[in-house]
Design a protein around this nucleic acid. Structure first.
Lengths: 173, 173
DNA sequence: ATCCTGGGTTCAGTGAATGAACTGACGCGC
DNA sequence: GCGCGTCAGTTCATTCACTGAACCCAGGAT
């Protein structure tokens, strides 16, 4: 968002939340993090956003405690970005917003569908399993390609997501 | 958001949703609409955003079918903005994001608290009533001032929200 | 020694947000 | 009829964030 990313006059938790995750691209970065994306280059290729913006967003999310930057290799030095416990609490909002968009704005052909990995049932619009009758945490969710998925994309993330995948687990490599 | 508000490469319901409600100020406009704000001037005074941005956001939300513009007076000509059924489906996201912000970013003093109007119990973090054990629709929610509310604001919306108020019902005038 | 890869930073150009000023339709008091 | 006030915008110069391309640097690989 341009010119002042915060909302100083709003005495409201929503305004505080939007100051952290309300900027352009940020929610999509988080979505990818839930999908298992951890590395700068993977975010970059999948989201097709300017590198400078990605670097800024990742740093802001780390700063806010939503992501954690962790070194997974010293030679060469490589870092990965992981959702913290605070960040993982955002899953219901990310999921429900995506479902809302699918229902009303996507011609109702879902791009990806989400199943409860332990029982196989497809999640309802609130993110609950109709069989188990409870909200399913992201660690128990399997993402599968849906009928609307774009088959032409060749970036590593799009390719990896063409096969079923458990949320929060890394995307190969 | 600056320079392209959409995410053309993202084959995802979340991206579609963010193109509609992901711009700066838009979620706060929706929050106010749930609180009962309906008129241009009330949004303007409560959100303290530039008039041009408000006009743009309201028009975009009407265009997307999230809000409905309805004439409530012919002389003088006056319109009000109401949430449509599609827009009202966004309540869980607005509520849960606000709760997440309260928990992690607001020093944990909530600005406003939400109760189930039929039984009086305070809603949990998912927007459900602990007593009735179900998700509460916004029409059954009463908003009350919380301990962190700013007592210095004098705009009509802030003043009206200092007394308990049912969501989606108009704020006096 | 040179190339390649991953993960950035720098920088000019663009376009959206800002805030103040202006417009226009109408109601009201005189 | 005339001025004043209100509501809902539109216009416009300025400011600042996003964009995309170029550049940088560390550490293998060749």
């Amino acid at each position: 968002m341009a010119l002042g990313k915060d909302y100083p006059g709003q005495d409201c938790g929503l305004a505080r939340a939007l100051e952290v995750i309300g900027e352009r691209w940020t929610m999509l970065v988080l979505r990818d993090a839930f999908y298992g994306v951890r590395r700068f280059g993977d975010f970059l290729a999948h989201l097709e956003l300017p590198r400078a913006v990605l670097a800024d967003r990742l740093a802001a999310l780390v700063d806010a405690g939503v992501l954690e930057k962790r070194r997974y290799s010293d030679a060469p030095p490589r870092d990965e970005y992981l959702l913290t416990a605070v960040g993982r609490e955002l899953w219901p909002m990310v999921y429900m917003l995506g479902q809302w968009g699918n229902r009303h704005l996507s011609g109702s052909r879902p791009f990806r569908v989400f199943h409860h990995s332990t029982c196989g049932r497809r999640l309802d619009r609130t993110g609950s399993c109709p069989a188990c009758d409870r909200a399913v945490p992201p660690t128990e969710i399997e993402i599968r390609p849906g009928p609307g998925a774009d088959p032409t994309r060749t970036d590593p993330v799009s390719v990896a997501l063409r096969t079923p995948h458990r949320l929060l687990t890394p995307l190969s490599t």
